[in-house]
Design a binder for these strands. Structure first.
Lengths: 124, 124
DNA sequence: GTAAGAATTGACACCGGTGTCAGGTTCAAG
DNA sequence: CTTGAACCTGACACCGGTGTCAATTCTTAC
């Protein structure tokens, strides 16, 4: 598929898709004229990339990590090197802490929202 | 307490503490010479601010939100306006989605790490 | 062949919290 | 006093994924 369709199907801008390619996260065949031609699996891959970005990983880490991830299409996946495993463990711990932080903030927001709702309802 | 101590106790840089003040997130008395003098509650407040930042809220939203948060010292808290409640609900939903994303990424990382560990252990 | 839509590369800018440096002032201990 | 640590303000820069514009080129349907 072409970049426009991939952008539409993933909700990711064409700009970002091209950027991913420069970062070694995403590959595409080329038409004789030079237009990118993506495989079907690119959709899942792009979504995964976005998740990793959202998790706070940088392009370089994602580039190392992606080959080790079992895809939906079950291709053979690489085995992470000990160094990468160490890095990923650090990231995982960071993510765990981040989730806790988010949960705390979420609860505070909920509390503020609930309090306002209560005041509105009872009117005192 | 002085800014140095607050920075040490919260793990937040002096630079950031001063920045928070410009954003209306944190106040401090001043010594006759102009040095900041923080109340004891500043520690909790700074930690809360950091959590909100980590949750993806911008300074302006945090500034609106903070007065409505019930502090540990139980001072009277303001009631969020309907507009703010709307904004916060949007933020809360965003945080919920983010937590889900983080969880997914965390599982993938765990999988990669576990796979590598298994290969290392069995050696095949 | 031609026109319109889609894609290409390249460059510049943004966001916004934080790091850091400079030059000057205040504080506290001797 | 004096001295060194701590603090003050102001300014500049960064990060790094993304938005956006410009000038070309490719594709496709008529």
């Amino acid at each position: 598929m072409r970049i426009g369709e991939l952008a539409r199907r993933t909700g990711v801008s064409e700009r970002s898709l091209r950027y991913y390619e420069t970062q070694g996260l995403l590959t595409a065949d080329r038409t004789p004229g030079g237009h990118r031609d993506y495989a079907e699996g690119a959709v899942d891959r792009v979504i995964r990339i976005q998740e990793f970005y959202a998790a706070g990983l940088c392009s370089a880490k994602i580039a190392e990590l992606l080959p080790c991830v079992r895809d939906a299409d079950g291709g053979p996946s690489a085995i992470a090197t000990p160094r990468l495993v160490g890095d990923l463990s650090v990231e995982r711990d960071r993510i765990d802490r981040k989730i806790d932080e988010l949960r705390r903030s979420r609860e505070v927001l909920d509390d503020v929202i609930a309090t306002a709702a209560g005041e509105t309802a009872s009117g005192d």
